[in-house]
Each structure stands twice: as structure tokens, then as C-alpha cells.
Write a protein that binds this DNA or RNA. Structure first.
Lengths: 230, 230
DNA sequence: ATAATAGTGTCTGTGAGACATTATGTA
DNA sequence: TACATAATGTCTCACAGACACTATTAT
């Protein structure tokens, strides 16, 4: 026993939807070594001296104290650990996928959203193995988006079908049939997850859009029994 | 920095299929405090002094050195961490779901397979929060079994449809239509995951059964595009 | 022959894919 | 008017559910 301990962190892969540019990743400028001054995933150390009641609490603390954003959805993705990912030695990271609403304000200039694609393509390199964590989190999002309504958590409470379509397509990385999405939204209406507000929104051109409201019933996403894009 | 460390383990939820009694859970009698002498999940401590290249390696080490069984399938489920799960203080467990073939030999008398139901119903209590870990691992198995061929990893390489049916039903916890399973096996044949050996197996009564061979193509389970039991 | 079990076939319903058609706004 | 976009409808196909029916063995 005695010193059989290891350095552990909780790291956050927080994504936001930008209607034109696609998904964006929240980064924070590191205040301390290692990699001081570089942009990296927000995260916190976990150890007995913090008041976290559990890992989800630690993730919420990271969101509150570091990222300073409110999560619309949060899910533990996985844990990685090895001797080389942190220069300080054997370390371990429990990382979370977090979706935030598109209209959030960033509270400080050590925080920024960058295009997700620039990170995934490694044009924007991240320290540690953070690029891989982002990759895994995105795979989780894409995987779940074909059989659940997870991308709706990227939208404001009131949304249009066109916005939902974009959320799904950016999450999955492929175009999908709008009629399939409409069918799914109809089934969500029947289950009380989505309702038609009756309002209309007028785009620059064309027929006005119905404005829907998304009301998640409990944690987790609405699950369908089939997959898109088979 | 300095002592910002935490106690971390990798724990294994290893399941085996017993044709009559259903799923069984592998337990080990703890050699050291805390809970010395009690039956618990096999696991190992992780820290910089062990030669693990990563968490999956640590899990394989736990299987090799503690459980002494060969995994047919292995998957990280999640990580739990809090101040109360271990009497030594704030601790963290990365736990894995492992499926092993039914013809396993146990190498020592500090190892045993117990009925999974007795653990899930808490008639067989486990130390730490191991009962909850088992619960979560089983939910993962059940969840994936409705849209993948995961339960086939509980079978020997050569198997019959009747055996596969039992593997699915025990994994999911409900009866399923054998004709649905046959359809899925046909599609796996087309994909090269299953082949008909041409052999027959004669049950005590009735028509002889076709003997199939399961040949996983890479890690992970074969995935279908629909769910059973909708 | 009878029982038991394996394997096949039939019918229905759901929902995704693809695409045509209609509806309703702006310029 | 033309054009753009939203919303609806139609047709096909794949596959799960349910269950009937046929096939092949032991007793």
C-alpha cells in the first residue's frame, strides 16, 4: 500500500453548434505547467482533498470553475491511463462528453471555442493526448446520434426542423433525409419530448418554419429502435 | 501538485454462461485487507510501478494474474470514484465487462463462479461497491445484446442456434423469437462472422441441430441496425 | 405412432430511403 | 411572375414479431 497512488484528472470535451461553421470545441488556456499557456481541454485534478462526491461531481466542478458553462447534456465517455500521456508520470483521465446550447457567453478570455474539425484533423494540436480524447468523444456522439435524439441537446429549447437537421448532420458527419428526421420528431411528440409551439419563424426566403420545443424527460437521450444510414 | 494522487484500481466483471443455470460471475477470495477473505471482483491496483502500458493492459494483467482466465471479449464499462467506496479513502475504479467461454477451467480454489442473479439480487453481497459495478456491467451487456451479437462471445467457437438463443435470452433477461435470431445469424453468415460447419449435433430428442462456427472479425461485436423487443 | 425439438414459411407492421408534390413565403 | 424553402405524401424495402407448418430424430 502506502504510495500506491496515481495522478488523476477529469477532462471535458464540450461541444457547441455553430449553424454555419459546424461543431466547435471549448478550450482553456492552461494557467500552470505542464504546457502552461497552451490551449487544452478544461479539466480538474481529482483527489481526496476536493469536496467532489463522485466523478460526475468533479466534472460539474470543472464545468463550473474552469469552463464556466452550463451543460445541456453530460456523459462519461471513458478513461485512459498510461505512463506517457503526462510528462509528470503515470496518469489517468476520466473524460466526459458535454453538449452546450449555442447561445452561451464565454466568461473570460482564457476560454475559447475553436472549430472541431481543426482539432480532429490535427491542424490545431492539443497537449497531452487530448486530441485522442476529443476523437473518442466525437465517435461517441456520432455513434449515438444514429439511434437517439442526442443532437437536439445542441439546440436552444425552441428550434426548427432545419436546425435539428444541421445538428444531426454535424454530429454524424453525413447528410440525412429530412423526412426521416421529421418522422422521428413526430414520434418524440407522441412521447412528450417535443411539442409544437404553434409559432412560426420566417427564414429570409421561403415558407415559414414551425417552431418546436424540446423538453427532455429525465437524463439521457431519447432512443429510437432503428439506426439511420444503414 | 506533489501529493495530488488517488488510489486507483481496475476491476473485472467476468461472466460465463451455464446452459442450465444462466450467467455466472467470477469472484476471487481477497488475500489482503480490506475485506480480507471475502469474495469480491478480481482486480489490480494501478500505479507507475507496474509495467502496464495502459488500462486495457492492466485489465489483461488482472485477468492473467488474478482471475487466470482467457477473455473472449473485453470492454471498458465506466469509472466510478468517490470518498466512501473504499475504507482507505478517496478511490477510483475503472471496471471492465469480460465474457469468457463456457468450458473454462478454474486454476485455483480462491476462484469461483457464482450465479449472477444471487449477486444482482444482493442475496450474495460483495464488498466495496462491487454489486453496483456488476449491475452496470450487466446493463451494458443487456443494452448491447438487443442490437449486436455480443452474447455469441459467451459461447464456444462451435455452437448451435439453441445455445445462441439461450445466450441472448440470459444476456437480455427476456425471451426472444428464435426466427429473429435465425435471421440475424443468416446476415452474419453473409458478412463472414458465422459459418455453417456442415456438422450436425444430436440432442437427446428431436431433429439434429446444425453446428455453426463463430469467427469474430476484429475486436468489438457484430452490430445490427435494429433493436429486438421494441 | 407419438413426442420432442429443429428448421422453414407466411403474414403483418413499422420505419428508413428516396424522391415527387404541394404549400407558403420573398423579391 | 419566378424562386426559395418548408412541409407532406407516396412508394419500396428490410426486418422484427408472431405463429403456423414441415422435417427429423428418439422412444
Amino acid at each position: 500500500m502506502s504510495t500506491a497512488e496515481v495522478l488523476a484528472t477529469v477532462d471535458i470535451v464540450a461541444l457547441r453548434l455553430n449553424a454555419e461553421r459546424g461543431l466547435e470545441l471549448l478550450l482553456i488556456r492552461r494557467a500552470k505547467a505542464p504546457f502552461e499557456g497552451q490551449w487544452a481541454l478544461p479539466g480538474v485534478l481529482i483527489n481526496g482533498r476536493c469536496a467532489d462526491h463522485g466523478l460526475d461531481d468533479a466534472a460539474l466542478r470543472a464545468l463550473r470553475e474552469k469552463a464556466r458553462v452550463k451543460p445541456a447534456y453530460m456523459e462519461q465517455v471513458a478513461t485512459v491511463g498510461n505512463a506517457v500521456r503526462d510528462p509528470r508520470g503515470w496518469s489517468l483521465s476520466v473524460f466526459y462528453l458535454v453538449l452546450v446550447a449555442p447561445d452561451i457567453e464565454l466568461a473570460a478570455d482564457d476560454l475559447d471555442f475553436v472549430p472541431l474539425e481543426s482539432v480532429r484533423s490535427e491542424r490545431f494540436p492539443l497537449p497531452f493526448d487530448h486530441t485522442q480524447l476529443v476523437q473518442q468523444a466525437c465517435e461517441r456522439l456520432a455513434g449515438k446520434s444514429v439511434y437517439s435524439a442526442l443532437p437536439l441537446h445542441l439546440l436552444p429549447e425552441r428550434f426548427t426542423v432545419a436546425e435539428a437537421l444541421k445538428a444531426f448532420e454535424w454530429s454524424i458527419g453525413e447528410e440525412i433525409q429530412h423526412s426521416s428526421l421529421r418522422g422521428r420528431l413526430e414520434r418524440m411528440k407522441a412521447a412528450g419530448w417535443v411539442e409544437d409551439t404553434g409559432e412560426r419563424h420566417q427564414p429570409p426566403m421561403g415558407r415559414p418554419q414551425h417552431v418546436l420545443r424540446f423538453t427532455p424527460q429525465g437524463d439521457g437521450a431519447f432512443v429510437f429502435d432503428r439506426s439511420l444510414l444503414v
